[in-house]
Design a protein around this nucleic acid. Structure first.
Length: 132
DNA sequence: CTTCTCACA
DNA sequence: TGTGAGAA
């Protein structure tokens, strides 16, 4: 059985990406498909790397981080790879928690403004009784 | 289908 | 982090 291969259009369809995005990932060093003349030929291995790339993206990792992890996938020993993965994940967790703090601060400020607005509105609808 | 470039968000 | 257009 020969290796199954894929065209860029096939992978684009399978992973719901544009061919352009896949070429962009290649530019960023995440995949390195072979060529048949000028056309890219993707092997099962390229397909796996693309899948790993998308998993990294779901975790919110940068393409540079994903590239580093993917490179280790076929170079560094697994223990090294897993240790590095844990570092990246810890940093990502810290980043998300910081974002959550920032969002909560803005939400609190929003609460304050809303309260002021409602107070003003109430004042207009039910004006203070005039003195007579 | 390909490369490359410029522009845009 | 991508996209779209246009040239070749």
């Amino acid at each position: 059985m020969p290796e199954p291969t894929y065209t860029i259009a096939e992978l684009a369809r399978e992973f719901a990406l544009t061919p352009r995005a896949i070429r962009y990932y290649e530019d960023q060093g995440l995949i390195a498909p072979a060529r048949a003349g000028v056309q890219r030929v993707y092997t099962r291995r390229d397909r796996i790397r693309l899948k790993l790339t998308l998993r990294g993206k779901r975790l919110g990792l940068s393409l540079a981080e994903i590239r580093e992890l993917i490179d280790m996938y076929d170079t560094a020993p697994e223990s090294t790879q897993l240790a590095r993965l844990l570092e990246v994940l810890a940093r990502q967790r810290a980043k998300l928690e910081q974002q959550r703090e920032d969002i909560e601060a803005v939400l609190a400020e929003l609460d304050g403004f809303e309260r002021q607005c409602r107070d003003l509105l109430e004042g207009a609808e039910r004006p203070a009784p005039r003195k007579r």
